[in-house]
């Protein structure tokens, strides 16, 4: 009998060990799930409009707290990262941005993990941070 050595969700969700590309993979999943969760909540939140002004205002009050602002700031960050990294993935997954295959030479640096790709990931993270700061500024009328 053989024992299955499947890492399972733990292996899938572990962003360490394999560099920034694996972190980007992990962030893409987390932000995607987070944004879907927010989207469902947002649809429910806006449906309170149909119950009149009082219902809308009481729903709005939930987001006007510190926790609400932190959550919305995270949503802004998630949205920007997911968009930026998503565009990088769409370009890469269409086969563009890492040159042509060539005869491998030691020390075998993989061209799919080139600086252009890494830079796009860092820029996506940077833009998300900037957008979060801007969002905080807007929410707190700075």
């Amino acid at each position: 009998m053989e024992k299955d050595r499947k890492e399972g969700i733990r292996g899938m969700a572990n962003p360490g060990r394999y560099g920034i590309e694996r972190v980007a993979y992990w962030l893409m999943r987390i932000t995607g799930l987070g944004l879907l969760f927010y989207f469902i909540g947002h649809i429910y939140e806006t449906s309170s409009l149909l119950d009149g002004k009082a219902a809308w205002n009481s729903m709005l009050e939930l987001t006007q707290t510190t926790e609400g602002h932190i959550f919305l700031t995270l949503v802004i960050g998630m949205c920007v990262f997911h968009t930026g990294n998503g565009i990088r993935l769409m370009i890469a997954q269409s086969g563009f941005g890492f040159g042509k295959p060539r005869r491998p030479d030691y020390p075998y640096t993989p061209s799919s993990l080139n600086m252009k790709n890494k830079l796009c990931i860092y820029v996506s993270i940077g833009l998300a941070a900037l957008a979060m700061m801007y969002g905080l500024g807007v929410m707190y009328d700075v």
């Binding site: 060990r17 394999y18 560099g19 590309e21 694996r22 980007a24 993979y25 893409m28 993935l89 890469a92 997954q93 993989p110 799919s112 993990l113 790709n117």
Partner: peptide
């Protein structure tokens, strides 16, 4: 999903 771990190892 282009995590690239395969190419790294």
């Amino acid at each position: 999903h282009f995590a690239g771990s395969c190419s790294q190892v």
